[in-house]
Design a protein around this nucleic acid. Structure first.
Lengths: 294, 294
DNA sequence: CTGTTAGCGCGTTCAC
DNA sequence: GTGAACGCGCTAACAG
């Protein structure tokens, strides 16, 4: 019985029904939400998804290998910092690239305002009476990380609080550039040790917050009674008792980015690159969860 | 500047550096663990992953569309029930297929013993002194679901408990064949209403358990003090206070399945189909978590 | 309406 | 050593 060969067919009719997505650890909750959005669009349009997992280390190498294996038509590059060299290589592919999480003049990009998001989270904690707020950061000085720290600082200073460097703690493991569950766990242990009077913690990623919960559990602390926890990125807050989160609807971003990429593939005669900035939103599980009186 | 064309290259050298995975909702935690294993193998071998998301409804149609778009070399079909018709179609592809979660004589398959897994979970609850145990089931009579119910029944009967049909509750939404978060949430609400004296609940999936946690939170119940919760599938138990789970190391299964598929692609002269049965293991967060005295 | 052929972009082979 | 021709499996265009 006859069955078509996808490869040959694609080659012949120059139609691929496939877009490529490259991202670090596509199984993390944050990227997962993004993928949900991407998949939603692709399903509606009978496209398949070619995934390049950049992993947590040697990301550039993984991306290069992927690209040298041959370009698919269209690349969605997510959560990967771009520089001159990479921008040149991507342009040389002659096939459209859409960026998520980073921006570059030559490409369509979907980014969010980390500084504003972090600020809103910490402001919320302050407004709810928390007198001792710590932050979990990644041990790596990425742009994302620095923006989120800046947001923390802004919130503290605008509220007339003194900003202490020591209240911002990094984990040691440095998996996934320091945004891992292990890093969050490690950082929270340090916080409990160095700042036992802490009433609220703002974590720089969702997985860090999850790791922090483990550390709290081990220490016999309750959330949010003993410590309130807010994480950055796309935690489904309903899943975690007392854990709030600031996020930027990654599903919508994924959908929009996939759509944009497919439009570029269809008609290359469209407009110039578009930069979309998403405003992060703080999602509080229950307003009472973060209230603090003492 | 020159850049290779993946499609043409694949066609020319009959080497694809790609395997296809078809599964329902690849963003659910269970499938996610599986994908982690698959990705681990693929990364080691410089292969990419073509994902066909079967979605939660019209799965057959989605699979057919994917196959008719043209077979890639090698398909990993996960969590999709197989019948005569489908088996014939897959054989006709002339390219190796590996099944995960279901079995069929003609194909390599990786399955697990749902009945034994469910039984071990419920037996554990009984041994820890729970006098009223309910189960959350999917509203659909899949083979998987019936096995898990049978395991529940075995445990109860072997312990000399009376088995009550009414203690097994299904959610109404029926998303993802009834294994969804929403179904778990709905079923748990019913349990709280119908069986307020419940001390432990065994959920048929990880996501159901997550939904059940939401319902418990809303009702002001604590885990595991008020109700102990055990979920089936691959929850990272550390992430959820008091939530244990029975699982079958999906990561290892994914790794093994991907490896098997790639071996089939390399040398078609290997042995006949292999059926691997994984023994599920109960992972208890802390042994004290499930203890009950009253 | 059916059968034949050219060519998609590459790797490989074979001739030079 | 370098270069031209062929074929991977298919679709599209074209001829009968």
């Amino acid at each position: 019985m006859y069955h078509p060969n996808r490869t040959a067919r694609s080659l012949a009719q120059q139609e691929f029904h496939t877009i490529a997505v490259a991202l670090p650890s596509f199984t993390a909750p944050f990227q997962n939400e993004l993928l949900k959005g991407i998949r939603a669009y692709l399903r509606e349009n009978d496209q398949d998804l070619l995934i390049c997992d950049l992993g947590s280390s040697n990301q550039e190498k993984a991306l290069h290998k992927f690209l040298s294996r041959g370009a698919v038509r269209g690349l969605l590059l997510c959560g990967f910092p771009i520089d001159d060299k990479l921008a040149g290589e991507l342009s040389a592919l002659q096939s459209p690239t859409v960026l998520v999480g980073y921006t570059w003049p030559a490409f369509d990009s979907y980014i969010w305002d980390d500084e504003a998001g972090a600020e809103s989270a910490v402001t919320h904690l302050i407004e709810n009476g928390h007198h001792k707020i710590c932050m979990i950061r990644s041990g790596v000085d990425s742009e994302i990380q620095l923006s989120r720290i800046q947001g923390f600082r802004n919130a503290m200073e605008r509220a007339g609080r003194k900003f202490e460097e020591s209240s911002i703690v990094a984990g040691k493991p440095l998996y996934h550039s320091g945004f891992s569950e292990e890093d969050g766990y490690d950082a929270m242990k340090t916080i409990l040790e160095l700042h036992p009077d802490t009433t609220a913690v703002f974590a720089s990623s969702d997985v860090q917050a999850i790791g922090a919960i483990s550390a709290l559990n081990e220490a016999g602390k309750q959330m949010p009674t003993d410590i309130a926890l807010v994480g950055y990125d796309d935690i489904k807050t309903s899943r975690f008792v007392g854990l709030s989160s600031v996020h930027q609807s990654m599903q919508k971003i994924g959908y929009a980015a996939a759509k944009k990429l497919c439009e570029r593939l269809d008609g290359p005669s469209s407009d110039g690159p578009e930069q979309v900035v998403i405003e992060p939103k703080l999602e509080v599980r229950a307003s009472s969860d973060l209230k603090r009186s003492n």
